[in-house]
Design a protein around this nucleic acid. Structure first.
Lengths: 127, 127
DNA sequence: CCTAATCTCTCCATTAACTGGAAGGTCAAG
DNA sequence: CTTGACCTTCCAGTTAATGGAGAGATTAGG
């Protein structure tokens, strides 16, 4: 499988597929005579794994950790659960931040008349 | 006012204060004989303005735009409101994303037993 | 077999918004 | 006069890719 086929199979851009091998997130693929990367199904499955993990907002380092559990026959589900719970808490923290940001900004936007006059509670608040 | 005083007054790190002048977000401060930056109240107020705008998640370019409205006597509140509303929508979009992420991950975490066995619905989902 | 289009390669630069650190000059206190 | 705090510039690094140049490889059509 050349890189563009792997890219399609994994649902990731070609550049990203190369990048993930460059940083050692997945193993470097073997090369054809002309130096073309040749991907196998195992690596493609890891790429898919990384794509899904990234979609949950895991950092590359987090993906590295998850990948090693993915490949570890002796893992315990509690290890995985711990990592996922941690990420869940980060998401919840972010949600709280965003909520208060939202409420404050929404309040300001509501109180702004939005007319042709310069007076503006939003600007007043910021300044 | 030397940079550390301005930094404290603005509530921003010294490095950031320098940076904001470097990128032309606020005007470059005058210099003392020895080359020390000397800040005045007007610039400090703009730095505060930028800090608050950044806290709402406005990009530097967004801050630039807001700052120019801040200083524009002929602005209309509708311009400000438009920009703020736009940011509000971005926040809401982000909230929706985060919510579905949260729900999906929470579901997985809940369904994972978190014991000493390797079987794990989280890993299964990702792989 | 030739050519044009498509793939692929490597390497370098860029993005956003800072942050960290090195090497060195300045200033105020004791 | 020295110590320590403060200031300067410049360069590098952070995250996770992405864009592009320039060059080689492969494939499809004629």
């Amino acid at each position: 499988m050349n890189i563009s086929a792997a890219s399609k199979a994994a649902g990731l851009p070609v550049k990203t597929v190369r990048y993930y091998a460059d940083i050692g997130l997945v193993e470097a693929p073997s090369r054809s005579g002309a130096g073309y990367r040749t991907y196998d199904d195992v690596t493609v499955r890891k790429l898919v794994f990384v794509r899904r993990s990234r979609a949950f907002g895991f950092s590359i380092e987090g993906c590295r950790e998850l990948l090693s559990l993915y490949q570890d026959q002796d893992r315990t589900s509690s290890e995985v659960k711990r990592i996922a719970s941690q990420r869940l808490e980060e998401i919840e923290e972010k949600q709280r931040e965003l909520q208060s940001l939202h409420d404050e900004l929404a309040h300001l936007v509501t109180s702004c008349r939005g007319d042709h006059m310069p007076d503006c509670p939003i600007i007043d608040y910021l300044g």
